[in-house]
Design a protein around this nucleic acid. Structure first.
Length: 437
RNA sequence: GAGCGCGUAGCUCAGUCGGUAGAGCAACGCACUUUUAAUGCGUGGGUCGCAGGUUCGAUUCCUGCCGCGCUCACCA
């Protein structure tokens, strides 16, 4: 920047610039004595003014609340944050590339649904005025995507938002992004192989390697273990609770109850237990209490109890169990898949069981969906379906410990805008009602 | 929803065993025409999250509230 080249006016402008202003320059590139790439400016144009002071350059913006509330400032100041969101974009494009190359087509199904189905979660409710009906923001696209396989769209996927009216944590945001895909004439074994390939490829596309570091652990998306839920309970059974269970301990409520008693007696896990609930529910809770935290390296956890899987196909040789698996990486649950139940009669019985659970007080039990049963009655091909949480996958691939670090605008409680201003003006405008309620 | 922690200048942070606050950077002004976070000199900037209580006096102690974080609960 030299007076001789930009003229009086340009130099005067230059002197008025502040940190954060946006300018355009014309000139040529050169290297300074210290070999720093620079621009020899011959013309300078003023493009935009930064009126609010930016945080200091050296420390950047570190206040987490401000980083989430004013993400634009976070992005300006912190290059690492920009890299995370670039990586997130690569995650999504890599998934699309992978699925597109295998003949899947991307579709869009309703976000507002008259019944919130396809998962077990409390929905958000909204209202359409003209039709005068309540609608739910979807908790999953599942039942609509499977209707498409009835219609002959054999390989479909959707990457979009789900909404669940539940708690917020480092692993939960009320709106989050899910990949769901369905492949006709495949079962959960096929999906296990496909999943391993998909996630290894995504990791390579994003980071150039299948390895990533998360929460102090090196994780290799190219190296998976497969464990059944019962095997996992056995493998991680705590020594304080006595000898490891056998497969025969999982057959009915009586033997499962005995296992729970051993855990409770050992006082090392406070797992919830309701003797009236189906044994399958208890077994799933036992898995969570005993084994889930140990699943750091990529794990396919397969074969789930039918009691917690209303949409999955039974195992042919074990009717109380279904062909279903979940993905655990870094201690996070990042995916859920199963051979889809395509028998309308069995599906009706499953919904009826869910209604019983609802009667027992389970708010998240699945609702009866008559149109879905009708769709199955037209013949749904056997299919495998899977959902993968994009936010959590991105957390793993970017080493982000909080889901808020991979969502551009995570949900925070809004500040009352102008709270102070309003208080001031109220005092001036209406000072006479101190005890008014 | 529960427990714990945090909230001081635009940012990053000190500090006050209770006597209304400081630094660095940023901003502004002047000088310098150059450095790769940080040139020099000077100046301005804070109802110490909000509201009560105790006290002669509260940013500091106590209570409540608000916001955020962590853990737990909840979360197929």
């Amino acid at each position: 920047m030299k007076l001789d080249f930009v003229g009086e006016k340009g130099f005067a402008l230059y002197k008025l610039l502040d940190l954060g202003d946006i300018i355009g320059v014309k000139g040529y590139l050169f290297r300074t004595r210290t070999n720093e790439l620079s621009i020899h400016v011959e013309e300078i144009h003023f493009l935009a003014k930064d009126l609010l002071p930016l945080p200091e350059k050296w420390h950047g913006l570190q206040d987490v609340e401000l980083r989430y509330r004013q993400r634009y400032v976070d992005l300006v100041m912190n290059e690492d944050v920009r890299k995370v969101f670039v990586a997130r974009s690569k995650v999504v494009s890599a998934i699309r590339r992978f699925l597109d190359s295998r003949g899947f087509i991307e579709v869009e199904t309703p976000m507002m649904q008259p019944l919130a189905g396809g998962a077990a979660a409390r929905p958000f409710t909204t209202h359409h005025n003209t039709l005068d009906i309540d609608l739910y923001l979807r908790i999953a696209p599942e039942l609509y995507l499977k209707r498409l396989t009835v219609g002959g769209l054999d390989r479909v996927y959707e990457i979009n938002r789900n909404f669940r009216n539940e708690g917020i944590s480092t692993q939960h945001n009320p709106e989050f992004t899910m990949l769901e895909f369905y492949q006709a004439y495949a079962d959960y074994r096929v999906l296990m192989d496909l999943t391993e390939e998909l996630l290894a490829q995504v990791a390579r596309d994003v980071n150039g390697t299948t390895k990533t570091t998360f929460n102090g652990h090196e994780i290799d998306f190219g190296d998976w273990q497969r464990l059944s839920m019962r095997e996992a309970i056995i493998k991680y059974w705590p020594g304080a609770a006595g000898a490891k269970p056998h497969m025969s301990d999982f057959v009915d409520a009586k033997t499962v109850g005995a296992l729970v008693k051993r855990l409770h007696d050992a006082k090392i896990h406070n797992m919830p237990y309701d003797p009236a609930e189906p044994a399958g529910k208890t077994i799933a809770a036992m898995f969570e209490a005993v084994a889930e935290e140990h699943l750091i390296q990529p794990t396919i956890l397969y074969d789930f109890p039918v009691a917690i899987s209303p949409l999955s196909k039974n195992k042919p040789d074990e009717p109380d169990w279904v062909e279903r698996f979940e993905l655990f990486v870094g201690g996070l649950e990042i995916g859920n898949a199963f051979s889809e139940l395509n028998d309308p009669e069995e599906q009706r019985r499953r919904f009826e069981q869910q209604l019983n659970e609802k009667e027992r007080g389970d708010e998240e039990a699945h609702a009866m969906d008559e149109d879905y049963i009708r769709a199955l009655s037209y013949g749904m091909p056997p299919a495998g379906g899977e959902g993968i949480g994009i936010d959590r996958l991105t957390m793993l691939l970017t080493g982000s410990r909080s889901i808020r670090d991979v969502i551009l605008f995570p949900l925070l409680r809004p500040l009352q805008p102008g709270e102070i201003d309003a208080a001031d003006s109220e005092e001036e405008a209406a000072p006479s009602t101190p005890n008014d309620k």
